[in-house]
Design a protein around this nucleic acid. Structure first.
Ligand SMILES: [Mn+2]
Ligand SMILES: [Mn+2]
Ligand SMILES: [Zn+2]
Ligand SMILES: [Zn+2]
Lengths: 152, 152
DNA sequence: ATACCAATTGAAAATCGTTTTCAATTAGAA
DNA sequence: TTCTAATTGAAAACGATTTTCAATTGGTAT
């Protein structure tokens, strides 16, 4: 199944005058192989294990292309405004982030259609999409004593 | 009224072992005097007009303190993941951003309470807040020819 | 009013993530 | 195999933010 997905993506790349390279294959394997969202740096570290010679620049460039082709999504968290990257989600979803431990939970079933329609009607905007993110404290952190240990 | 607000804030600062300085006063005047959200740089430029000797570091430090004291809010946009700063909002609200021209419209009346309760029940999370942002194209940009001119 | 000291300031350097430049390499069509 | 546009990594450039540090200052206690 992994092979199938990659050859499919290879086709999409070729169709857009991009080439499938070993580096890009390595990046794709890391991204599709992880359930979590990964920063460019995190992806870099993981890819290096299989492909030590790869450059961080290549990660950035590859991610940009993949995002443009809608094969991966860009996200960003609240705290450090660093831009995060995530693998292609299984459909539309959002995130709930624990302020203490940083755990990320995927959220489905946001229905903002009514709101979007109202806004569109009132402002004339054509709304393409939205970013929704909840923050708070997870069960585990709540139990283990609320305050203190904010993750930097 | 301006004086009142500032002396009030001065009290809050003092209560937290912070001092009210001319620099901080200048920053506060800029922030409270603008309806828009401002980047640290934008605030810097404006403050400089009244207080040319101020350093950019002071802007950052002041904003961090004000945010910690909940006197201003942190926000961040979709595109460039730069962290934006906004003046204290007149209540809970969100943003709609035009991908073409960058215009930001304030949104009120998001009712995510039901969703938050459901999520809280299902996951055990204690939800503190949320970030919601719509993106699309504003009326003006739509009229002036859809595609192309994406802002850098 | 004066003294005092922790808090504050700005300049400069350091950091961090990201982008640009460029010459050498390579994927893949012909 | 040949050919060429696309890709690569190193290094430098970049822009935003943070840290360091010595000099200054706000505000409280005398
Ligand atoms: Mn997700
Ligand atoms: Mn606003
Ligand atoms: Zn947690
Ligand atoms: Zn617009």
């Amino acid at each position: 199944m992994k092979t199938d997905a990659l050859t499919g993506i290879a086709g999409i790349l070729r169709k857009n005058t991009y080439k499938m390279t070993p580096q890009r294959r390595a990046v794709l394997e890391v991204i599709t192989g992880s359930h979590d969202h990964l920063t460019p740096q995190a992806i870099y570290r993981r890819v290096q294990k299989k492909y030590p010679a790869i450059g961080l620049v290549t990660i950035y460039r590859t991610l940009e292309i993949l995002a443009d082709l809608n094969l991966v999504c860009r996200v960003h968290a609240e705290d450090n405004c660093r831009s995060y990257l995530m693998r292609r989600p299984n459909g539309h979803h959002h995130h709930m982030v624990c302020k203490s431990c940083g755990e990320v939970i995927d959220i489905t079933g946001c229905n903002l259609d009514e709101l979007e329609q109202r806004l569109s009607r009132e402002t004339g905007f054509k709304i393409d999409g939205h970013l929704l993110e909840f923050n708070g404290h997870c069960r585990a952190c709540l139990d283990r004593g609320e305050n203190d240990n904010e993750q930097r």
